[in-house]
Amino acid sequence: MTITLDDLVLVLTECAGADDDVTLTGQNLDVPFTDLGYDSLALLETAALMKQRFAVDLTDEEVTGIETPREFLDRVNHAAAQAA
């Protein structure tokens, strides 16, 4: 299966909350997470829940190196393909 942007938005919102002013959509896949208001802890939390939901395991070093939503999706889908 492919982990989609919708999956990421659900998990990210659950882990790090959401605001009306900045929302993650297909339009800002290449905007850095920091500009979207999500810091490194938010991504670590998101990666932890991704592991529970989708059994994809990223190391903390991999997670903290990720800058954009597109990179995040590429990483988790790559890891999912490796695991399959």
Binding site: C15, G17, D20
Partner: peptide, 8 residues
Amino acid sequence: IPGRLLPQ
């Protein structure tokens, strides 16, 4: 409180 602050 802003939504981003609730989980933390």
